[in-house]
């Protein structure tokens, strides 16, 4: 108990004095996860639109499969992406392993099922009359999709935010793809894992508290966006 309290006090101190290491790691965490959420959103939201607007055989199965992948273990994704982007893998020539770009790529894959699945759900909730109205007013198929996404934008935004939250708080991909390189690919979660294993519990707690605070902000934003 003593230890937890001491760590807590020291953590607060590290945060309010804007400890350089803490600030650096937090910033990196944010931009890597934001980039992966952005990359995933750019691909997954339209993809969700395509799935929702086309009827094809196996659509139900596909959507079920995507929903199953919501809780894809991060280490599994880490391993698969590692094998993909390792120099000996099919995408090896890009040199993405152990770089922030690789992490962005891996996390984007990790959060894709959530973003696609929740986008499909969000779009399915839009009245089919909106589609008919847009079409009757001369919209192209793509314009129709954009219109429907715009109608569901709060729920779609929520999907993107949830993806961002998952990217920010995961450790498997960050560790396996980033390699936890100090000053380059070390982010909040991998730092916590490392510092804890090295017994630097106070720094770990400070970073953990920051992570929780960011998640809290995301959650508040989510509630706001969903109009609760």
């Amino acid at each position: 108990m003593q230890e937890i309290w001491g760590g807590f006090v020291r953590a607060i101190d590290l945060i309010i004095t804007l400890n350089a290491q803490v600030v650096e790691i937090t910033t990196r965490s944010l931009y890597i996860s934001l980039s992966s959420a952005f990359l995933a959103a750019v691909i997954c939201v339209p993809l969700g639109g395509l799935i929702e607007f086309h009827s094809f055989r196996g659509k139900k199965i596909l959507v079920n499969l995507i929903q199953t992948l919501y809780s894809l273990p991060t280490v599994t994704v880490g391993l698969i992406v590692f094998l993909l982007i390792s120099r000996s893998g099919p995408l090896g020539s890009l040199g993405l392993l152990f770089s922030p770009w690789g992490m962005v790529f891996g996390q984007a894959i990790l959060v894709s099922p959530i973003m696609i699945g929740l986008t499909v759900t969000a779009l399915a909730a839009v009245s089919p009359q909106i589609k008919d109205t847009a079409r009757s007013l001369g919209a192209t198929e793509i314009q129709i999709i954009v219109t429907v996404i715009n109608e569901a934008r709060q729920a779609v935004m929520a999907a993107v935010l949830l993806g961002f939250g998952r990217a920010l708080s995961e450790v498997g991909v960050a560790m396996m793809i980033g390699g936890n390189i100090r000053g380059y690919t070390r982010v909040l979660t991998t730092s916590i894992a490392l510092e804890t294993s090295m017994g630097n519990l106070e720094l770990s707690m400070a970073l953990g508290m920051i992570l929780i605070s960011i998640s809290l902000v995301i959650n508040l934003l989510l509630n706001r966006v969903q109009g609760r």
Partner: peptide, 18 residues
């Protein structure tokens, strides 16, 4: 699409875009 763009329709229970 070309043909639709020469027509317009008003539905029985119209919906509005946001």
């Amino acid at each position: 699409l070309q043909a639709r763009r020469r027509m317009a329709m008003v539905f029985q229970k119209p919906v509005m875009f946001r």
